[in-house]
Nucleic acid binder design. Structure first.
Lengths: 157, 157
DNA sequence: ATATTGCTCATACTTTTGGGTGATTCTCTG
DNA sequence: CAGAGAATCACCCAAAAGTATGAGCAATAT
């Protein structure tokens, strides 16, 4: 409870303590500095400097950094595939389960197993099982071949 | 000449003047404030506050803004034609070496690095070097993505 | 009611891929 | 001639992919 409060207002509390301490030290220093009458200016200068520095420090610590937005244009090529027709016969002949087809499509976009697992809300192991079965049914050994074969068969865009 | 110098160190000069002025005012105030012996603390507090504020102000004024890069993607739709025509501009922009292009094409057929090495009569390590450079230039992380991107850009069939 | 199929997940192990670094050789260019 | 870029290769480490096997669960077909 106290800890949470402290953590939340850490900066403010620390700053307050630092200020109090400094004032105390200065008050004490004052006694001996006042003996030398001309040291007053140096004294004030010191106070000014210290608190200016403190202010700068606090400002840099607390201030939300200004952001300068730099816009970089980047060209993205996207193939226009409006005339793709899925080869339903070939797809049916493969006897892929719905889930496997889904995985195959994500596979073709270049996603990793982990990324596919994330998209489908399943574990990495599950995706591995699906891909393995997929490779079996497509009679390939690697994901790259699976994509290539599926593309040639016309079952993915 | 003086003007240029002033403009260049405007902030420093202004700050210096402000500091001097404040010290002068305080020195003057001191005379009457010292009469009330217990006003000393208020006096110091005022100094501390003012210079802290000054420090904050200076810091906020001077602080270098952080840059934030925003990538704006510019979409280019590539016409999908049944007879493939290589997108020469895109290919040239990528600045791929002849060997890298060769590797990319074999990559797209679904071959493993070892198989590519065999086809090109080079070592597996060499193929790895090529693929790595390829991924860099295509701005991708995996071979599957490389193939997908190259296909969308129209630099492979 | 059993068998099958699809989906899920795990564990354990091997292979492949990718990242980083550095070296060598050759060729082209200023 | 020095420097840059391309191609070659090596070594090491880490991450991703793939293989094998087993198992639980729900819907569906027999």
């Amino acid at each position: 409870m106290f800890r949470a409060f402290f953590l939340k207002h850490k900066l403010v509390i620390l700053y307050g303590c630092a200020l109090a301490l400094l004032l105390f030290v200065m008050r004490w220093l004052e006694i001996r500095l006042l003996i030398m009458s001309h040291a007053q200016d140096i004294y004030f200068g010191a106070i000014a400097l210290i608190f200016t520095a403190l202010g700068i420090w606090v400002a840099l610590k607390v201030a939300t950094p200004k952001k300068e937005v730099v816009v970089v244009e980047k060209t993205v090529y996207v193939k226009h595939t409006n005339d793709f027709v899925r080869n339903e016969e070939a797809l049916a002949a493969l006897n892929l389960s719905p889930r496997e087809t889904e995985v195959l499509e994500l596979l073709a976009t270049g996603l990793s197993n982990a990324e596919i697992a994330g998209k489908l809300f399943v574990s990495l192991n599950t995706v591995k099982t699906h891909t393995s079965k997929l490779y079996e049914k497509l009679e390939v050994k690697r994901r790259t071949q699976a994509v290539e074969k599926a593309r040639q068969m016309g079952i993915i865009a």
